[in-house]
Amino acid sequence: MKGFGRYVIFLGSLFVRRESFKTYYKLVLEECVQIGVNSAFLFMLVSTFIGAVTTVQTAFNMVNPLIPRFVISQVVREMTVLELAPTVMALIYAGKIGSSMAGGLGTMRITEQIDALEVMGINSSSYLVLPKIIASMLMYPMLVILSGVCSLVGGYIVGTFIHIVTPNEYVAGLRFAFNPTEISVALIKGIVFAFLIASISSFKGYFTKGGALEVGIATTEAVTTSVIAILLMDYFLVNILL
């Protein structure tokens, strides 16, 4: 609870004594590139495989010949767009981007780089953390879309390659009973998760005390806490949004 209070105060401190808009613009852009470069490939890889595996397993479980084959891709769509793309990928994002944020800030803290910024009269938390949060909230939804597309493509490739489903059936299934709000829900989830991961990881890294060992601990804590926050928030959001 005390930790939560400090987290809220920390979030408040991001908005006082800010630098010029131009400074942030540059920093956000740098962070966006960093996030994209760091995670795009992993996201594509993971989601393509999950899409493929989901397709094969759904087909394997559909023993009743009365169920039309296009249901396979419908199931894949439902799974990936709603849960896999925003939520499961958020766990990976926490492991990849969250840990690097916490590690980076923790190192800056113990090597006095944060003190150096403060001596120059810069609000270090706002200068370092705000761009990370904004960049995450911009980039993560795009990664969600990317991974949604990749998983559907992965399913298509494997499904048609091993003849579980014909291309026409697969596409028909994707279109069948499609509700576009699902995509909005996925994107809203994505934005919320991105905020949680970036802010929690930065918080843990920013307040590191001690040495290299503590940076390691802060990094682990950042990932653990982010994951718990994502799962709780997922449950909460599914309840209010669906």
């Binding site: 190192t107 090597t111 780089q113 001596v119 120059m120 009269g121």
Partner: peptide, 20 residues
């Protein structure tokens, strides 16, 4: 305070250079 800080230069014990 920020006016005074503009007039300060500091060399830290460990350098504190930005490694990025």
């Amino acid at each position: 305070k920020s006016e005074i800080r503009r007039e300060i230069g500091m060399l830290f014990q460990g350098g504190a250079l930005f490694d990025s």
